Every structure is written in structure tokens, then in C-alpha cells.
Simulated scan of single mutants.
Amino acid sequence: MTQLTNEAIRYIEDTDTGLHYYEMTPQEARASRTVPKWQSALAPTLASIEDKKITVRDDSKINVRIYTPVNEKMLPIIVYYHGGGWVFGDLESADAGCQLLADKAQAIVVSIDYRLAPEFPFPTPVFDAYDALLWVHEHAAELNGDPSRLIVAGDSAGGNLATVMTHIAKQENGPAITAQALIYPVTNTNFTMDSYKKFGAHFGLDIQGMEWFSGHYSISENLANPLVSPLQAKDFTDLPKTILLAGEADVLFDEGVSYAEKLATAGVEVKHIVMPGLIHSYFSKMEYFEKATIETVEKIAAFINCPSS
């Protein structure tokens, strides 16, 4: 039986009351989920944090935030995609985790503010994510980054986008991605795996929430598309080494296991780490899960900086 951490219990008690986000409009849900700025003695000192606008394929501009650690060497680059079910989340919701990643991994981190559904449903977030990846690769030298050490990372829906980037980059002969760091990623959208039955209510992400997110992100005919559900991809060979971190009590747990198994079967180096007693969305909710977020970043940093086996 799963034993939740005290932090997870407190988070559930504080948030599992009143009107749920999936009973609101997307606009109302976004307004209800603003993230307080992380202020802590454990926050790192970075050389700079810079906001920038970049142009994507339809000539729209999206925001990115560039985190540079105190290090004058040419550094790896982590392209980070925030979570939020493709419907909410932004640069602020990912800010604490990205600060920590830049410091712990000694890497340039570029956080991507891709456009959100339902105003911009699939495939727009995928296009924004890939166009941002191309921009980072093309401008690596300006960022003091090494284009030969390019990593994608993300949590939840952002983890979904990160892993989709590896498939697109391979198919289109795009930038070589050396690693992916996936924090409880969405890899499937059929809501039938056993972890949905175990943790589908009152564990931070309900099954109704995933149905709400997916319904806003894509029409039902696209839910089995590998660019929405990468577990449905046919080919997993030649993808970058992968670290996948999972909250033990998460509706997405089983699809993460299945994705890691498919990668391993295809010969990809994979490290699957279970975070005991934790629930979906723990990462970067610093008022509850500061310690767990720091531990997660440390595990990612160790993995991406370790030579491939």
C-alpha cells in the first residue's frame, strides 16, 4: 500500500476542496493557479535570468526565459517545457525548477512559454516547442552553450512535449539531442492503465482532470497520434538516453513505466526512478515540495552529466 509523504498529504488536503479546475473554464482555471515566487535560502545564485521573445513558424512571437549559471565555460543546454496539461502553466510555474536545473546541472536552461490550448490546440504547442528547440540550437553560441550537448526536459505535459521533440528531431534530421529528462510525463491518452484505477481520484491529478486537459488539447481522433501519445510511436530506436522520474502515487505512473520499457527494449539507455510517496505535480510546487524538487533536479543533473554507458 502506498504511504504518502506528509507534504503530499498536506497538498491534497489544501487543494482537494471546493471547485476543481476541471469544473471551470480554462481561463478561470489559469487565474486560480498562479504560482507564488520562490523565495528560499536554498535558491541558487545565477549569473543571469533573461526573458526574450522568439519568432515561430506562423510569425507569432513566444516568450523564453534563459537561465545562466555562474560558469564561464561553454555549457550544455537544457530546453525545458513546463507542465499544466497543455492548458495552463507558464514561465513562472517552471521558474524554481529551472533555476535549480541551471545551478545543479551547470547548464544553460531555456524555458519555453509555448502557446496553450484550447486557444491554441494541437499541433500548435508541438510546433512552438520544436521551433524553440531549433532556435536554441541555432543560437547556442550566443547563449554560451554547446550545441553538441543539447538536452530536452519537462514535467507532465511538458514531459510529453520533450519526448515528442526527440521523435520529431530524429524524423526530420533535426538537432542531435543527447538526453531527455522526463518528470512524470504524459505518454498516452487513453486513461485505462491500472494506475488510473489506483490513483484516479484525490491524488493531485484526477482522471477527470486528464480527460479535461486532453479534450482541450486535441480532438479525440488525434489522441492516438504519436505526437500526442508518444507511447503509440512505432520506432523507439536511436532516441537519446533518458531519465524518467515518477511520483509513486500518480495516475500517469504506468504509462511512464511502459514508455521506459519501450525505450529499453529498443536499446536506449534508460533510468526510471520512483519518488516514494509523491503525487503528480509535485515538481516546482515549492511551498509544499521544495525538498523533493531539489532531489529530483539533483538526480537529473547527475544523469545528464554522466557519460553514456
Rank of each mutant, 00 (worst) to 15 (best):
A201T: 15
G200P: 09
S229P: 07
L245K: 07
V268K: 00
V297K: 03
I273K: 08
G209W: 01
G209E: 10
I300F: 08
S220K: 14
G200M: 08
G204E: 11
G267A: 00
L205Q: 15
A249E: 00
N225F: 05
L227R: 09
I279N: 01
V274G: 06
S218W: 01
S218K: 08
S284P: 04
L227Q: 13
K299A: 15
Y259R: 02
S220Q: 14
K291M: 06
V228A: 07
A260I: 04
S284F: 03
A301Y: 11
K271C: 08
D206E: 13
G247H: 06
H216I: 04
G277N: 10
H272Y: 12
D238W: 02
S229A: 12
F289N: 03
T237W: 09
E287G: 10
F203A: 11
V228T: 03
P276S: 09
G247R: 07
W212R: 04
N222I: 02
S214Y: 10
D206Q: 11
E261V: 06
K241H: 14
A201F: 11
S218G: 13
F213N: 07
N222T: 07
Q208N: 15
E298P: 12
I273C: 06
I207K: 15
A246Y: 08
I279E: 00
S218Q: 10
F283S: 01
L239Y: 02
L245Q: 15
A266D: 04
L244V: 15
F199H: 12
K241Q: 15
G215H: 06
D206V: 12
I243P: 07
V274I: 11
L244G: 09
E261L: 10
S214R: 08
A264W: 08
F253S: 00
G209H: 08
Y282S: 00
A224M: 12
V274F: 05
E295R: 11
A292T: 04
F253K: 06
G200R: 09
L263G: 00
G204C: 11
K241D: 08
G247A: 12
L239H: 02
I207D: 11
V297R: 05
I294M: 11
A292Q: 13
A264D: 05
T293D: 03
E290F: 02
I207L: 13
N225S: 09
I273G: 04
V268I: 08
F199V: 13
K234T: 14
T265Q: 14
K234C: 07
F199P: 11
E298G: 13
S281C: 13
H216G: 03
L239N: 02
L205E: 13
L227D: 14
V268N: 00
L245S: 10
K198F: 13
E287T: 10
